[in-house]
């Protein structure tokens, strides 16, 4: 069933802050086997001009996708998550995410399309720090594949 177009433009309340920890960044960097010292060594990060260790570019997805749960699980929208695949992902950074950040995400439904029975949902997550400054915007395209006939 096609999703309701009237949800386009809907913005959900900002999430409670997610506190970025040094050890969580280390765990993530090790999981993607990225040995860049900017992720684990405070002095190396400072030498690059960062106040603390920074997170790999895609780290913030865990935070924005959790926030997008508000949209995905909105019973009024009625998305069939069991049929959803991740179509596209994009980030635009004002600055890198870093340890000590307390990040809040505001999710907005940017677009809803129906193509060959597939529902396509574009969600924008604006990530701000505790001071209200923009850190990064994440765009996530989800595709709910059409249910099989019969």
């Amino acid at each position: 069933m096609a999703l309701d177009q009237s949800f386009v433009g809907r913005t959900y309340p900002p999430t409670d802050p997610y506190e970025v920890g040094r050890e969580k960044i280390r765990e993530f960097a090790e999981a993607v086997r990225d040995a860049n010292p900017a992720y684990t060594d405070v002095e190396a990060a400072k030498a690059l001009g960062h106040p603390d260790v920074i997170a790999p570019p895609t780290f913030v997805f865990a935070i924005t996708f959790t926030a997008a749960g508000q949209v995905i699980e909105d019973p009024q929208l009625g998305l069939d998550y069991s049929r959803v695949v991740h179509g596209d992902q994009k980030f635009a950074y004002t600055r890198p995410v870093r340890a000590g950040d307390r990040l809040s995400v505001t999710s907005t439904i940017e677009a809803i399309k129906s193509l060959a029975g597939n529902d396509i949902l574009d969600i924008r997550g604006e990530v701000h720090d505790e001071a209200g400054e923009h850190v990064v915007t994440a765009w996530t395209k989800l595709v709910a594949r059409a249910a099989e006939e019969g």
Binding site: G49, I54, P57, D88, K90, F91, A92, Y93, R95, P96
Partner: peptide
């Protein structure tokens, strides 16, 4: 890595 401005 902080030099990355956009990535999609």
């Amino acid at each position: 890595p902080g030099a990355v401005v956009e990535y999609g």
